[in-house]
Design a protein around this nucleic acid. Structure first.
Length: 273
DNA sequence: CTGGCTCCCTGAATGC
DNA sequence: TGCATTCAGGGAGCCA
């Protein structure tokens, strides 16, 4: 499921091929994919807009246009696909943008999303939707000290807190489980009793796991999101009853904050202080 | 402030 | 074999 590394991979993949092109028309194939504005306004506003840049913020893909910002959230099963020429839509295409260069033919940017959880925003106030997000884990302002202080400020189970996008941006279920295992912290440990040493270990684990995910083009789970390799390197995620790579104990799966959670009961003990 | 629950969806897995 | 049911999962919204 697209988390920071998968979204980064998708953004980098399309960037070269769309920057500089002009959106000549939009085919909205599933109206509820548009968070804002209405289908009618979306089509009017996006028509003729030139694509200036593609970047990522948290799990959003940010496509900068001349007068607007196109924000795309892939949620569970979304993907962006680039096609050359006039090709008929594929199953699960929810939005198709026809792109054109001055001296070349049509190409298409398709938002394909099996489960229809994904959302697209067209806005001139991107900060309205991105402003409440926490820091980027791969940027300079995410430091061990910041993590320590902010974990201590809250009193929550640590895993749901890592998944909270207003706390830290971009971490999802897979990378949270992987990070906590590397840092040897129980997913239900309370954030306010984490030690500086643990926070430092967690910081390093989050950064390394996200970088490794990006290096392997993300993780492909089941039939959702294709092309990544990171699923071959999972330590705990999707490894229930398999041996922990550190101590050999069977990995356990429990529900934490309504999310499937994988951890090693020996390496990741609950802290009681 | 926190946590729990529901909703949005489809396709794979499971049940009979 | 085939039909019906169950379930995962990111994030918003609601409630306690």
């Amino acid at each position: 499921m697209p988390e920071l590394p998968e979204v980064e991979t998708v953004a980098r993949r399309i960037e070269k091929d769309v920057v500089g092109k002009t959106i000549v028309s939009a085919d909205v194939r599933w109206a509820r994919t548009l968070a804002t504005p209405s289908v009618k306004k979306f089509k009017e506003q996006i028509k003729g807009q030139k694509i200036k840049a593609v970047s990522r913020r948290a799990k959003y893909i940010h496509i900068l246009l001349e007068n607007y910002n196109l924000l795309i959230h892939l949620r569970m099963s979304g993907d962006l696909l680039l096609r050359t020429g006039k090709i008929k839509p594929e199953k699960h295409d929810r939005l198709i943008l026809d792109l054109k260069m001055p001296n070349s033919g049509i190409s298409q940017l398709a938002f394909n999303d099996t489960r229809k959880f994904g959302k697209v925003w067209l806005t001139n106030q991107p900060e309205k939707f991105l402003g409440k997000l926490g820091p980027e884990p791969l940027e300079k302002d995410f430091t061990p000290q910041w993590l320590y202080e902010n974990l201590r400020k809250r009193k929550r189970q640590i895993k749901p807190l890592l998944l909270d996008q207003t706390f830290l941006a971009g971490v999802g279920n897979i990378y949270a489980d992987e990070s906590l295992h590397i840092a040897k912290i129980h997913p239900q440990a309370l954030s306010n009793v984490v030690t500086l040493k643990q926070a430092e270990a967690l910081h390093e684990a989050i950064v390394s796991v996200l970088k490794e995910g990006i290096r392997r083009n993300g993780a492909s789970i089941d039939w959702v999101y294709r092309g990544g390799e990171y699923q071959n390197y999972f330590r705990v995620y999707d490894r229930e009853d398999e041996a922990c790579m550190v101590c050999g104990t069977k990995i356990k799966k429990i529900i934490v904050g309504q999310r499937g959670t994988h951890f090693c009961p020996k390496c990741q003990k609950v802290e009681r202080k």
